[in-house]
Design a protein around this nucleic acid. Sequence first.
RNA 1: GGGUCGGUGGCAGAGUGGUCAAUUGCACCUGACUGUAAAUCAGGCGGCUUCGGCCUACGGCGGUUCAAAUCCGUCCCGGCCCA
Length: 375
Amino acid sequence: MLKSKRKNKSRRIGKIKTIHGEVNTPFFMPIATKGAVKNLTPEEVKNLGAEIILGNTYHLWLRPGDKLVAKVGGLHKFMNWNGPILTDSGGFQVFSLGAKAEEKYGLNGVKLSDEGVEFRDPIDGKKCSMTPEKSIDIQLNLGSDIIMVLDECPPYPCSKKEAKKSVERTTEWAIRCKKYFFKKVGNRKSRPLLFGIVQGSIYEDLRKESAKSLVSLDLDGYAIGGVAVGEPREKMKDVLKWVLPLLPQEKPRYLMGLGRPEEIMEAVNLGIDMFDCVIPTREGRHGRIFLWNGNQRSKIANCKADFYKTININNEKFKNDLSPIDKNCNCYLCRNYSRAYLRHLFATKEPLALRLASIHNLKFYLDLMKILGGR
RNA sequence: GGGUCGGUGGCAGAGUGGUCAAUUGCACCUGACUGUAAAUCAGGCGGCUUCGGCCUACGGCGGUUCAAAUCCGUCCCGGCCCA
Protein backbone atom coordinates (compact mmCIF):
# COMPACT_ATOMS: atom_id res chain seq x y z
CA MET A 1 0.00 0.00 0.00
CA LEU A 2 2.81 2.36 0.79
CA LYS A 3 6.39 2.66 -0.22
CA SER A 4 9.13 5.02 0.83
CA LYS A 5 11.26 6.99 -1.55
CA ARG A 6 13.82 9.76 -1.55
CA LYS A 7 16.94 10.50 0.40
CA ASN A 8 15.03 10.77 3.62
CA LYS A 9 14.58 7.17 4.63
CA SER A 10 11.61 7.79 6.87
CA ARG A 11 9.59 9.90 4.46
CA ARG A 12 6.97 7.88 2.61
CA ILE A 13 5.06 8.36 -0.59
CA GLY A 14 2.24 6.10 -1.61
CA LYS A 15 -1.46 5.57 -2.07
CA ILE A 16 -4.32 4.44 0.10
CA LYS A 17 -7.16 2.59 -1.55
CA THR A 18 -10.68 3.24 -0.34
CA ILE A 19 -14.18 2.50 -1.55
CA HIS A 20 -14.36 5.98 -3.02
CA GLY A 21 -11.01 5.92 -4.72
CA GLU A 22 -7.30 6.23 -4.09
CA VAL A 23 -5.64 8.94 -2.07
CA ASN A 24 -2.03 10.00 -2.51
CA THR A 25 0.05 10.15 0.64
CA PRO A 26 1.10 12.16 2.44
CA PHE A 27 -2.19 14.00 2.59
CA PHE A 28 -4.12 16.55 4.58
CA MET A 29 -7.83 16.18 5.26
CA PRO A 30 -9.90 19.36 5.44
CA ILE A 31 -12.31 19.05 8.30
CA ALA A 32 -16.01 18.81 7.65
CA THR A 33 -17.09 17.99 11.19
CA LYS A 34 -20.79 18.44 10.60
CA GLY A 35 -20.85 17.43 6.97
CA ALA A 36 -19.44 20.61 5.49
CA VAL A 37 -16.05 22.22 5.30
CA LYS A 38 -17.08 25.50 6.85
CA ASN A 39 -17.93 28.14 4.25
CA LEU A 40 -16.91 26.06 1.23
CA THR A 41 -18.71 23.85 -1.23
CA PRO A 42 -17.37 20.34 -1.79
CA GLU A 43 -16.51 21.34 -5.32
CA GLU A 44 -14.35 24.16 -4.07
CA VAL A 45 -12.66 21.87 -1.57
CA LYS A 46 -11.91 19.42 -4.34
CA ASN A 47 -10.59 22.11 -6.65
CA LEU A 48 -8.22 23.29 -3.94
CA GLY A 49 -6.62 19.87 -4.18
CA ALA A 50 -8.25 17.93 -1.37
CA GLU A 51 -8.61 14.22 -2.10
CA ILE A 52 -10.23 13.23 1.17
CA ILE A 53 -12.09 14.99 3.96
CA LEU A 54 -12.95 14.26 7.57
CA GLY A 55 -16.37 14.08 9.17
CA ASN A 56 -17.32 13.51 12.78
CA THR A 57 -19.34 10.63 14.14
CA TYR A 58 -20.40 12.43 17.28
CA HIS A 59 -21.74 15.55 15.56
CA LEU A 60 -23.47 13.78 12.69
CA TRP A 61 -25.02 11.26 15.03
CA LEU A 62 -26.71 14.04 17.01
CA ARG A 63 -27.54 16.16 13.99
CA PRO A 64 -28.99 15.23 11.56
CA GLY A 65 -28.69 11.62 12.76
CA ASP A 66 -26.88 8.77 11.05
CA LYS A 67 -30.18 7.07 10.22
CA LEU A 68 -31.23 9.97 8.04
CA VAL A 69 -27.84 10.08 6.37
CA ALA A 70 -28.06 6.35 5.70
CA LYS A 71 -31.54 6.79 4.29
CA VAL A 72 -30.36 9.25 1.65
CA GLY A 73 -27.51 6.97 0.68
CA GLY A 74 -24.67 7.97 2.97
CA LEU A 75 -22.71 11.05 3.79
CA HIS A 76 -21.11 11.27 0.36
CA LYS A 77 -24.44 11.68 -1.29
CA PHE A 78 -25.94 13.76 1.50
CA MET A 79 -23.20 16.38 1.34
CA ASN A 80 -22.33 15.91 -2.33
CA TRP A 81 -18.72 14.83 -1.87
CA ASN A 82 -17.80 11.78 -3.88
CA GLY A 83 -14.22 11.38 -2.74
CA PRO A 84 -13.17 9.39 0.31
CA ILE A 85 -14.29 10.40 3.78
CA LEU A 86 -12.64 9.53 7.06
CA THR A 87 -14.85 9.73 10.10
CA ASP A 88 -13.53 10.38 13.54
CA SER A 89 -15.08 8.12 16.14
CA GLY A 90 -16.28 10.65 18.68
CA GLY A 91 -13.43 9.75 21.00
CA PHE A 92 -11.93 13.19 20.78
CA GLN A 93 -15.14 14.71 22.11
CA VAL A 94 -14.48 12.89 25.37
CA PHE A 95 -11.52 15.15 25.60
CA SER A 96 -12.83 18.35 24.05
CA LEU A 97 -16.16 18.31 25.84
CA GLY A 98 -14.62 17.13 29.06
CA ALA A 99 -13.62 18.71 32.30
CA LYS A 100 -12.26 21.90 30.81
CA ALA A 101 -15.47 22.61 28.97
CA GLU A 102 -17.41 21.96 32.13
CA GLU A 103 -15.31 24.50 33.98
CA LYS A 104 -15.50 27.04 31.25
CA TYR A 105 -19.13 26.77 30.23
CA GLY A 106 -20.68 25.32 33.37
CA LEU A 107 -22.13 22.40 31.48
CA ASN A 108 -22.05 18.76 32.33
CA GLY A 109 -19.14 17.14 30.62
CA VAL A 110 -18.78 13.45 30.03
CA LYS A 111 -18.80 10.29 32.08
CA LEU A 112 -16.37 7.58 31.15
CA SER A 113 -16.80 3.95 31.96
CA ASP A 114 -15.47 0.72 30.55
CA GLU A 115 -18.71 0.29 28.70
CA GLY A 116 -18.47 3.60 26.87
CA VAL A 117 -18.92 7.33 27.24
CA GLU A 118 -21.87 9.30 28.46
CA PHE A 119 -22.13 12.76 26.94
CA ARG A 120 -24.48 15.58 27.45
CA ASP A 121 -25.34 17.26 24.20
CA PRO A 122 -24.03 20.80 24.63
CA ILE A 123 -26.75 22.24 22.48
CA ASP A 124 -29.89 20.87 24.09
CA GLY A 125 -28.52 19.15 27.19
CA LYS A 126 -29.81 15.75 26.15
CA LYS A 127 -27.98 12.72 27.57
CA CYS A 128 -26.38 10.47 25.01
CA SER A 129 -24.17 7.48 25.39
CA MET A 130 -21.53 6.31 22.97
CA THR A 131 -20.04 2.86 22.92
CA PRO A 132 -17.44 1.28 20.63
CA GLU A 133 -20.16 -0.69 18.87
CA LYS A 134 -22.40 2.33 18.48
CA SER A 135 -19.56 4.35 17.03
CA ILE A 136 -18.98 1.65 14.41
CA ASP A 137 -22.67 1.47 13.63
CA ILE A 138 -22.88 5.20 13.12
CA GLN A 139 -19.78 5.31 10.95
CA LEU A 140 -21.11 2.46 8.83
CA ASN A 141 -24.41 4.27 8.49
CA LEU A 142 -22.58 7.40 7.42
CA GLY A 143 -20.85 5.34 4.75
CA SER A 144 -17.37 6.28 5.90
CA ASP A 145 -14.35 5.10 3.91
CA ILE A 146 -11.98 5.12 6.86
CA ILE A 147 -13.50 4.31 10.21
CA MET A 148 -11.72 5.18 13.44
CA VAL A 149 -12.11 3.05 16.55
CA LEU A 150 -13.55 4.76 19.60
CA ASP A 151 -10.66 5.83 21.80
CA GLU A 152 -10.09 7.76 24.96
CA CYS A 153 -7.94 10.83 24.45
CA PRO A 154 -6.69 11.96 27.85
CA PRO A 155 -5.96 15.61 28.52
CA TYR A 156 -2.49 16.97 29.24
CA PRO A 157 -1.06 16.83 31.80
CA CYS A 158 -2.17 13.34 32.67
CA SER A 159 -0.87 11.15 35.46
CA LYS A 160 0.71 7.90 34.46
CA LYS A 161 -2.01 6.03 36.25
CA GLU A 162 -4.72 7.77 34.25
CA ALA A 163 -2.77 7.39 31.03
CA LYS A 164 -2.41 3.69 31.68
CA LYS A 165 -6.12 3.38 32.27
CA SER A 166 -6.89 5.19 29.03
CA VAL A 167 -4.53 2.95 27.06
CA GLU A 168 -6.14 -0.16 28.49
CA ARG A 169 -9.59 1.16 27.74
CA THR A 170 -8.63 2.27 24.25
CA THR A 171 -7.20 -1.16 23.50
CA GLU A 172 -10.24 -2.91 24.92
CA TRP A 173 -12.50 -0.67 22.87
CA ALA A 174 -10.43 -1.32 19.74
CA ILE A 175 -10.91 -5.05 20.23
CA ARG A 176 -14.64 -4.55 20.56
CA CYS A 177 -14.72 -2.24 17.55
CA LYS A 178 -12.89 -4.74 15.38
CA LYS A 179 -15.06 -7.62 16.45
CA TYR A 180 -18.24 -5.69 15.86
CA PHE A 181 -16.97 -4.15 12.62
CA PHE A 182 -16.29 -7.52 11.01
CA LYS A 183 -19.51 -8.94 12.33
CA LYS A 184 -21.32 -6.17 10.44
CA VAL A 185 -19.11 -6.07 7.38
CA GLY A 186 -18.57 -9.80 6.99
CA ASN A 187 -16.41 -10.82 4.08
CA ARG A 188 -17.48 -8.00 1.84
CA LYS A 189 -14.85 -7.42 -0.82
CA SER A 190 -15.31 -3.71 -0.73
CA ARG A 191 -15.40 -2.53 2.83
CA PRO A 192 -14.33 0.56 4.76
CA LEU A 193 -10.91 0.59 6.37
CA LEU A 194 -10.68 0.36 10.15
CA PHE A 195 -7.96 2.29 11.96
CA GLY A 196 -6.72 1.98 15.54
CA ILE A 197 -5.57 4.89 17.69
CA VAL A 198 -2.41 4.79 19.78
CA GLN A 199 -2.69 6.57 23.13
CA GLY A 200 -0.42 6.71 26.19
CA SER A 201 0.10 10.41 26.76
CA ILE A 202 3.82 11.24 27.08
CA TYR A 203 4.88 7.94 28.63
CA GLU A 204 7.24 5.85 26.53
CA ASP A 205 6.28 2.45 27.89
CA LEU A 206 2.55 3.21 27.59
CA ARG A 207 2.86 4.50 24.04
CA LYS A 208 4.79 1.41 23.05
CA GLU A 209 2.40 -0.89 24.82
CA SER A 210 -0.52 0.81 23.11
CA ALA A 211 1.09 0.53 19.68
CA LYS A 212 2.02 -3.12 20.13
CA SER A 213 -1.38 -4.26 21.27
CA LEU A 214 -3.12 -2.40 18.46
CA VAL A 215 -0.71 -3.75 15.87
CA SER A 216 -1.47 -7.25 17.07
CA LEU A 217 -5.09 -6.60 16.10
CA ASP A 218 -3.98 -6.26 12.49
CA LEU A 219 -6.05 -3.18 11.69
CA ASP A 220 -5.94 -1.38 8.35
CA GLY A 221 -4.03 1.62 9.60
CA TYR A 222 -2.83 3.28 12.76
CA ALA A 223 -3.36 6.71 14.14
CA ILE A 224 -1.46 8.47 16.84
CA GLY A 225 -3.87 10.34 19.04
CA GLY A 226 -3.59 12.36 22.20
CA VAL A 227 -0.96 14.69 20.78
CA ALA A 228 -1.01 18.48 20.48
CA VAL A 229 -3.21 18.64 23.55
CA GLY A 230 -0.93 21.04 25.37
CA GLU A 231 2.24 19.01 25.84
CA PRO A 232 5.65 20.49 24.96
CA ARG A 233 6.51 20.11 21.30
CA GLU A 234 9.55 18.00 21.94
CA LYS A 235 7.39 15.49 23.75
CA MET A 236 5.27 15.05 20.67
CA LYS A 237 8.35 14.28 18.61
CA ASP A 238 9.38 11.75 21.25
CA VAL A 239 6.01 10.08 20.96
CA LEU A 240 6.48 9.72 17.20
CA LYS A 241 9.96 8.33 17.66
CA TRP A 242 8.71 5.74 20.14
CA VAL A 243 5.64 4.67 18.24
CA LEU A 244 6.49 4.81 14.54
CA PRO A 245 9.13 2.04 14.54
CA LEU A 246 6.54 -0.31 16.00
CA LEU A 247 3.97 0.28 13.26
CA PRO A 248 3.93 -1.89 10.14
CA GLN A 249 5.68 -0.21 7.21
CA GLU A 250 3.00 -1.07 4.67
CA LYS A 251 0.11 0.44 6.60
CA PRO A 252 -0.88 4.10 6.74
CA ARG A 253 -0.01 6.20 9.77
CA TYR A 254 -2.22 9.07 10.76
CA LEU A 255 -1.23 11.83 13.16
CA MET A 256 -4.53 13.05 14.50
CA GLY A 257 -5.33 16.74 14.73
CA LEU A 258 -1.99 18.05 13.50
CA GLY A 259 -0.97 20.72 13.01
CA ARG A 260 1.11 23.75 12.24
CA PRO A 261 2.87 23.57 8.86
CA GLU A 262 6.30 22.91 10.32
CA GLU A 263 4.87 20.19 12.56
CA ILE A 264 3.38 18.50 9.54
CA MET A 265 6.65 18.79 7.66
CA GLU A 266 8.55 17.24 10.55
CA ALA A 267 6.00 14.48 10.97
CA VAL A 268 6.12 13.62 7.27
CA ASN A 269 9.87 13.38 7.55
CA LEU A 270 9.42 10.97 10.43
CA GLY A 271 7.06 8.79 8.41
CA ILE A 272 3.51 10.04 8.93
CA ASP A 273 1.12 9.78 5.99
CA MET A 274 -2.10 11.43 7.06
CA PHE A 275 -3.12 14.65 8.77
CA ASP A 276 -6.16 16.64 9.64
CA CYS A 277 -6.41 19.95 11.43
CA VAL A 278 -8.79 22.82 12.03
CA ILE A 279 -5.99 25.36 11.89
CA PRO A 280 -6.26 26.48 8.26
CA THR A 281 -10.02 26.95 8.37
CA ARG A 282 -10.53 28.11 11.93
CA GLU A 283 -7.56 30.45 12.06
CA GLY A 284 -8.49 31.67 8.61
CA ARG A 285 -11.92 32.59 9.91
CA HIS A 286 -10.18 34.51 12.66
CA GLY A 287 -8.01 36.42 10.20
CA ARG A 288 -4.72 34.54 10.33
CA ILE A 289 -3.39 34.00 6.84
CA PHE A 290 -0.56 31.61 5.93
CA LEU A 291 2.01 32.96 3.50
CA TRP A 292 4.79 31.25 1.60
CA ASN A 293 8.17 32.63 2.43
CA GLY A 294 10.27 32.83 -0.71
CA ASN A 295 11.71 29.61 -2.15
CA GLN A 296 9.44 27.37 -0.23
CA ARG A 297 10.18 24.19 -2.11
CA SER A 298 13.88 24.20 -1.42
CA LYS A 299 13.31 25.22 2.16
CA ILE A 300 10.92 22.37 2.72
CA ALA A 301 13.32 19.98 1.02
CA ASN A 302 15.97 21.18 3.44
CA CYS A 303 13.61 20.82 6.37
CA LYS A 304 13.76 24.50 7.19
CA ALA A 305 10.87 25.65 9.32
CA ASP A 306 10.86 29.20 7.99
CA PHE A 307 9.26 28.26 4.70
CA TYR A 308 6.18 30.17 5.73
CA LYS A 309 4.92 32.95 7.93
CA THR A 310 1.54 34.16 9.04
CA ILE A 311 -0.12 37.53 9.17
CA ASN A 312 -3.20 38.69 11.00
CA ILE A 313 -5.08 40.44 8.23
CA ASN A 314 -7.13 42.30 10.85
CA ASN A 315 -4.09 44.33 11.84
CA GLU A 316 -4.33 48.02 11.19
CA LYS A 317 -1.16 48.02 9.10
CA PHE A 318 -3.01 46.25 6.28
CA LYS A 319 -5.73 48.87 6.04
CA ASN A 320 -4.18 50.57 3.04
CA ASP A 321 -2.10 47.66 1.78
CA LEU A 322 -3.14 47.15 -1.82
CA SER A 323 -0.64 44.39 -2.49
CA PRO A 324 -1.74 40.80 -3.06
CA ILE A 325 -2.22 38.60 -0.01
CA ASP A 326 0.57 36.25 -1.11
CA LYS A 327 2.37 36.81 -4.38
CA ASN A 328 3.59 33.20 -4.26
CA CYS A 329 0.06 31.82 -4.19
CA ASN A 330 -2.31 31.40 -7.10
CA CYS A 331 -5.52 30.74 -5.20
CA TYR A 332 -8.71 32.61 -5.98
CA LEU A 333 -8.08 35.10 -3.19
CA CYS A 334 -4.52 35.89 -4.18
CA ARG A 335 -5.29 36.14 -7.86
CA ASN A 336 -8.06 38.67 -7.38
CA TYR A 337 -7.90 40.64 -4.18
CA SER A 338 -5.66 42.90 -2.12
CA ARG A 339 -4.82 42.73 1.55
CA ALA A 340 -6.77 45.93 2.07
CA TYR A 341 -9.86 44.33 0.56
CA LEU A 342 -9.69 41.19 2.66
CA ARG A 343 -9.12 43.27 5.78
CA HIS A 344 -12.11 45.38 4.86
CA LEU A 345 -14.26 42.26 4.53
CA PHE A 346 -13.20 41.12 7.97
CA ALA A 347 -13.64 44.55 9.50
CA THR A 348 -17.15 44.85 8.11
CA LYS A 349 -17.99 41.23 8.94
CA GLU A 350 -18.77 40.28 5.39
CA PRO A 351 -19.18 36.50 5.16
CA LEU A 352 -17.05 36.47 2.04
CA ALA A 353 -14.03 37.13 4.29
CA LEU A 354 -14.45 33.70 5.86
CA ARG A 355 -14.73 32.01 2.51
CA LEU A 356 -11.72 33.72 0.99
CA ALA A 357 -9.53 33.10 4.02
CA SER A 358 -10.57 29.45 4.14
CA ILE A 359 -9.86 29.02 0.45
CA HIS A 360 -6.41 30.50 0.75
CA ASN A 361 -5.33 28.69 3.91
CA LEU A 362 -6.59 25.33 2.71
CA LYS A 363 -4.78 25.84 -0.58
CA PHE A 364 -1.66 26.58 1.42
CA TYR A 365 -1.97 23.35 3.41
CA LEU A 366 -2.87 21.25 0.40
CA ASP A 367 -0.02 22.70 -1.66
CA LEU A 368 2.32 21.96 1.22
CA MET A 369 1.25 18.32 1.11
CA LYS A 370 1.86 18.21 -2.62
CA ILE A 371 5.36 19.53 -2.15
CA LEU A 372 6.03 17.10 0.70
CA GLY A 373 4.75 14.27 -1.48
CA GLY A 374 6.80 15.37 -4.46
CA ARG A 375 3.67 15.89 -6.52
C1' G B 1 -40.29 85.28 26.00
C1' G B 2 -42.00 81.63 30.19
C1' G B 3 -41.67 76.62 32.11
C1' U B 4 -39.27 72.06 32.28
C1' C B 5 -35.72 68.16 31.54
C1' G B 6 -30.93 67.52 30.13
C1' G B 7 -25.41 68.38 28.51
C1' U B 8 -20.18 62.36 31.03
C1' G B 9 -14.33 59.52 27.57
C1' G B 10 -15.01 57.98 19.35
C1' C B 11 -20.60 56.76 19.95
C1' A B 12 -24.64 55.11 23.13
C1' G B 13 -25.38 55.33 28.13
C1' A B 14 -24.47 54.42 34.00
C1' G B 15 -22.84 57.13 38.13
C1' U B 16 -25.58 62.07 41.51
C1' G B 17 -20.33 64.70 47.67
C1' G B 18 -14.97 60.87 49.06
C1' U B 19 -13.93 53.63 47.55
C1' C B 20 -14.18 57.69 39.99
C1' A B 21 -9.48 58.11 35.19
C1' A B 22 -15.20 57.16 35.92
C1' U B 23 -20.06 50.49 35.39
C1' U B 24 -21.70 48.53 30.78
C1' G B 25 -22.45 47.96 25.44
C1' C B 26 -20.70 49.28 20.58
C1' A B 27 -16.48 50.86 17.86
C1' C B 28 -11.22 50.58 17.83
C1' C B 29 -6.17 48.05 18.89
C1' U B 30 -3.47 43.46 20.05
C1' G B 31 -3.12 38.36 21.07
C1' A B 32 -4.69 33.14 21.25
C1' C B 33 -6.62 29.18 18.36
C1' U B 34 -3.70 21.86 16.60
C1' G B 35 -8.92 14.37 15.65
C1' U B 36 -14.11 22.32 15.33
C1' A B 37 -19.93 23.36 21.42
C1' A B 38 -14.97 28.02 17.98
C1' A B 39 -17.43 34.00 11.96
C1' U B 40 -14.90 32.09 18.87
C1' C B 41 -12.23 33.51 23.15
C1' A B 42 -8.82 36.70 26.00
C1' G B 43 -6.42 41.32 27.00
C1' G B 44 -6.00 46.63 26.03
C1' C B 45 -8.52 51.15 25.14
C1' G B 46 -6.94 60.04 28.44
C1' G B 47 -1.43 61.51 28.75
C1' C B 48 3.29 60.71 31.17
C1' U B 49 6.07 57.40 34.32
C1' U B 50 12.48 55.70 37.41
C1' C B 51 5.69 51.67 37.70
C1' G B 52 5.54 54.31 43.42
C1' G B 53 2.82 57.49 41.31
C1' C B 54 2.12 62.30 38.64
C1' C B 55 -0.82 65.43 35.32
C1' U B 56 -5.30 66.70 32.50
C1' A B 57 -10.54 65.30 32.41
C1' C B 58 -17.65 64.42 33.24
C1' G B 59 -20.47 71.92 28.46
C1' G B 60 -17.81 77.26 30.16
C1' C B 61 -16.73 80.35 34.26
C1' G B 62 -17.14 81.31 39.46
C1' G B 63 -18.44 79.47 44.36
C1' U B 64 -19.43 75.99 48.86
C1' U B 65 -16.41 71.95 51.06
C1' C B 66 -10.82 68.90 54.10
C1' A B 67 -12.92 66.63 49.42
C1' A B 68 -17.23 67.94 43.55
C1' A B 69 -18.77 64.42 37.40
C1' U B 70 -21.93 64.70 41.75
C1' C B 71 -24.12 70.73 45.81
C1' C B 72 -24.94 76.37 44.71
C1' G B 73 -24.77 80.75 41.19
C1' U B 74 -24.31 82.28 36.34
C1' C B 75 -23.52 81.85 31.16
C1' C B 76 -23.64 78.81 26.63
C1' C B 77 -26.00 74.69 24.00
C1' G B 78 -30.02 70.88 23.09
C1' G B 79 -35.04 68.28 23.72
C1' C B 80 -40.06 68.87 25.12
C1' C B 81 -44.34 71.96 26.78
C1' C B 82 -46.79 76.87 27.08
C1' A B 83 -47.20 81.81 24.85
